[in-house]
Nucleic acid binder design. Structure first.
Lengths: 213, 213, 213, 213
DNA sequence: GATGAATGAGAGTTCATTCAT
DNA sequence: GATGAATGAACTCTCATTCAT
């Protein structure tokens, strides 16, 4: 059996086990058994548990990013790009729940080298969204400039909302909505809210009550 | 030293260590050392590692829920209540980043009994938000009825956005926005978007391009 | 509550727990709880786990020996004395199964100081039996002298048989025979066998078959 | 080193340590050191302390039973079979004192699963002896029928006597008799006593003295 | 290339034992 | 006289990791 195939089987197994148990609780024995290979072979190919985990994270991150990227046409209008990206995101996370679990939970649980990888993935996505928002804001006729931090905050909120929806869609209940539905829900509230925002409409605190702090 | 005080010190230490390392990677030795007590005493008071973890989760969940609840006036209008709740949420998670880390990451990482607790906490919050949205939707004059699942989806998105913003605010360094700022950002995009949504404005796919899938 | 009473309660509890679990598996916590006293008090009165165990053994050994002794009239004929002693032995072990369990099993399980105590108890009993046998042998008219070691062996066999019968009588099944019955069975086979033995009748290997070794 | 050899070394060591200290007081560290292997290897091969103990008991029980069985010719007369069995029993227990210690003391000290095994072993032996006695009783010309419980009692007494003699022979020092001697002693008192018993001679209480109870 | 055999290090947990009050 | 509070030491057991073959 060629090395490449073996290696993929190992990583597949590792993703499964890491997704189910988390990094520390996962055991190399279990991974080896699930991969149908002996432990020394795993160490020969993948070096160590940490390296194996890193490999899993990178592979899943790239797969997710690739799925989103290849779904977006670079010259389409901003809203269209967001829409396509969201759909691809929801479709991919629904199709690879274990990979998504590793990325969204397990990786952030095991300090330094790994949360960095995930954080960078997230930052990359956030930056894309930031550019989308800026473009949308710029395109609006009587636009109100948004301060940089506000845009970044919006992008984080949007990404977080998407992650939460992905988690909800992957959740236990039978009511799991489709990727399209999920994307629509998010698009409706976010994009419309965003349009209003850049056109100057904001929510204001009722002046009578003074907010403490 | 009276038992109650000791116990709190232990739980404090445990929350710190669990937040930093996750459940499995956390060691009772480290917790004991940080708590300034011996391991047998921890076992005498808190029974086992799992029980200790459960105690941490419950305490932090209740503290967070309590902070949000006591910040919201039950008879205020819906937007006001959301605003106050969000501010309290961001303030509390910013003030107790370790508790928030345990709740948002670690607890979901360690199967069955604990993710249930956190899932219930989240469901509780989602339900509150669902009621807020329904109220807001009902209050709008020319309102469009939202289907139940869409409302739930919106609530999940809102909660997810809030969680992401809390994570961002607790993030590595400098650029951390204040609770007020964060709440404003979210409120602006969500509430305004919501108002438009219930008044019938939606985002639609540009018909020319056929979305794949 | 006077010290003596407390102490007896503690030893009672200890005998119970030691009988059930053995020395090492018994926990001072359990003993303390069963005795209705706090652990420091036990240590104040009985010094240590080993001391407590020794106290238990000595008390039970003396109780058993006392019961047997006070049942035997010193000037009665040998067979009568054996008979009375056996009956008392079976009666006492049946009435105090926990004490007997401690003596017969637990004490031999926990090296050096304790098996000595039990061994001495056994030796004491064996010696008594030896004297009985010698007396019986001397009283027989055409007696065959028994070598010393053979007598000791017989005594050990008799004591062992008695112990086994005591264990059987204390056993789980409902068929447990009474002390009298048990004593009769043993008396019948042992005494009658003994009488024949000292009168010269012995069992001999059939000469045709040569026993290996 | 092949697994089988290692395993036997481990069990040998375990029997030694269990015999010396009893189940609970034995430490896996000590067993591992004596076996010349590391603890993890022991756990890999023998699973757990309890399993290891069970394995020891079963092995020793089978060895003892096998030694006795293969020494007895099935078609020899009853007394001959008893004689051969006793000699094999004493020879084996003398040759394997540690195995005998585990069977006769330690196993009965550690509840449920193990005392069952030993109890079954003992019952098996008792049954064999019961059949021998019945055969001997049936062969006697003017035989007196023995009630079932009396036979069982006799068998228990005989087995107990044998066990006690084995213990005595394994005892502290010098005076240890040979297997042949021991077997002769027991055979003489038991078989001759038994013959008389079945021919009607019994020991009776002297009528003048009334036994209490 | 692939594996059975083996382990150092460290995990959670429990216990007999002792102060300060 | 009696106890709640506290611990050092030792236990069973597991894991990531590496040879010799």
């Amino acid at each position: 059996m060629p090395r490449e195939v073996r290696e993929r089987q190992m990583i597949d197994a590792a993703v499964r086990v890491f997704a189910r148990c988390g990094y520390s609780a996962a055991s190399m024995d279990e991974i080896a058994e699930l991969a149908g290979a002996s432990k020394p072979l795993i160490y020969l190919y993948l070096n160590s548990k940490e390296d194996l985990f890193g490999t899993c994270i990178r592979r899943e991150a790239e797969a997710l990013l690739g799925a989103v990227r290849s779904a977006v046409e670079p010259h389409a209008p901003a809203d269209r790009r967001l829409w396509d990206g969201l759909r691809a995101f929801f479709a991919h996370t629904a199709a690879h729940p274990e990979g998504w679990a590793v990325l969204s939970c397990r990786a952030r649980t095991h300090g330094e080298p790994f949360d960095q990888v995930v954080a960078r993935l997230r930052e990359e996505i956030v930056e894309v969204v930031v550019r989308l928002i800026e473009e949308a804001a710029g395109a609006a006729p009587g636009r109100t400039p948004l301060v940089g931090r506000e845009v970044t905050g919006l992008a984080h909120a949007l990404v977080g909302a998407a992650e939460a929806l992905a988690g909800w869609a992957n959740g236990p209940a039978g009511a799991a909505p489709s990727a399209k539905e999920t994307a629509e829900t998010l698009m409706n509230v976010a994009w419309v809210g965003l349009e209003n925002l850049v056109s100057g409409r904001r929510w204001g605190v009722a002046p009578a009550v003074s907010p403490a702090g």
